[in-house]
Amino acid sequence: MIKSTRATAKDVARASGVSQTTVSFVLNGAAGHVSEVTRERVRQAARELGYVPNGSAQALRTGASRIVLLNVEGIPTGSSLGNYIRGLDAELAAHHHVLLVLHGHLSSQDLSDVAQAVSARAVIDLADSGRADTITADTGASLIAFSAQAEVPVRYLAGQGHRNIATVLPDTPELQALAGLRERLMRRAVEAADLPGCPTLVLPGDLGAAEERLRSFRAEHPEVTALAAYNDDVALVTLAAMRQLGLRAPQDLAVIGFDDSPHGALFSPALTTVHIDAEALGRISARTALGLPAADATPEPAHVIVRQSG
């Protein structure tokens, strides 16, 4: 069997110390969020190895198709994601492009392969903030939408008189990257508000396990009077566990969610939550992916929907 000695993207990735997806986007001219230092390191490794992109990669570089990929693996399918996709799709359609949404379990290489197979104009990867250097469109606003804006619930809870605030994260492996981002931003927001440290409560989706976890957390942190949840689903698990323990919201613990999902208003007590203008964020991502100005698509500021739980 004859083995080809031609250099591959994997060889370039190994030589330059980056992922294969980063190599693909750099060498195909679609690495808008990769630093210039990293780009040059990849290009240098490719030159030294004699790497030549294949025909599909060349098509990606020239933007031959009018397809934009959106990878949403692991992102909670709440109101914000739906509105984000709606805005992204509408803006792309207005500029005669098509949105292809990927929900499957994709590695960085899988995502790169799909992008090359369809000669994608751009790739927006919401699945893992750890792969942020491989995104071709500006997903900064997208990550803010789905994991950040931590100052909004912190500012609200502090205004209600709470000084000891904890963040509640999901015990879900596929959400760990975004949940970790939220945790860091919550701590930063608490520090900026000159409040005491922000402990973290990780809750499983199972109600019985969540009840035990919350019971232990209360014993360890009796000073905490308010909980800012990762999203509305986590907030509702929190409220359900509180009910099992005989705790009231907001008298014993104030609870605020994130996403303004419709079912939050149907719970008792009705869930206080954070609303974001995700549709505008989708339009911004679409324009950025196409290299168009996005200044006139400024989203409305995130704000708190005040109900009974907080």
Rank of each mutant, 00 (worst) to 15 (best):
S268M: 10
D232V: 10
V237Q: 14
P199Y: 00
D296K: 08
A210V: 07
D206K: 01
S216I: 05
S285L: 05
A235M: 12
A210I: 02
A295E: 11
L292G: 06
G197P: 07
A235I: 02
R215N: 15
M242Q: 12
M242F: 04
V234F: 03
H263K: 04
T273K: 00
D260C: 10
E300P: 02
F267V: 13
E300K: 09
G257Y: 01
P301C: 10
G264C: 07
E211G: 07
A280D: 14
L281N: 09
A270K: 14
A295F: 00
L201V: 13
L207Q: 14
T200Y: 02
A286E: 09
C198S: 06
G282K: 02
D232S: 01
V255W: 01
D260N: 15
D232H: 13
D259V: 06
S216A: 14
F267D: 09
A302N: 13
T273G: 02
P204C: 05
T298Q: 04
L214T: 12
L236F: 07
L207A: 14
H221V: 13
A226T: 10
L207Y: 00
G208K: 15
D277A: 08
A241R: 04
E300A: 09
S216D: 04
V234D: 02
F267C: 07
R218M: 10
A235S: 02
A289D: 11
G208A: 15
T273Q: 01
L292P: 13
P250C: 08
P250L: 06
L207P: 00
R213P: 07
V255P: 01
Q244D: 13
S268H: 11
A226L: 14
P269K: 03
D277E: 05
E223C: 15
L201Y: 10
F267Q: 05
I276Q: 03
A302S: 05
L253M: 09
T200E: 00
E211N: 05
A265K: 13
E223N: 13
V234G: 03
G264R: 04
A289T: 15
A210H: 00
H275M: 15
Y230L: 07
P204Q: 11
R283T: 14
V237P: 01
E220N: 04
F217W: 03
L292I: 12
V274G: 11
L281A: 10
G257I: 01
G208H: 09
L214A: 03
L239S: 01
L207S: 12
R287T: 03
T288K: 12
P222R: 08
A265S: 08
A265F: 10
R218A: 06
F217N: 09
T200A: 00
T225A: 06
D232A: 02
G264P: 06
V202K: 11
T272D: 15
L203I: 13
G246W: 14
C198Y: 14
L236C: 03
A235G: 02
A241P: 06
F217R: 08
T298A: 11
H275V: 07
R218K: 04
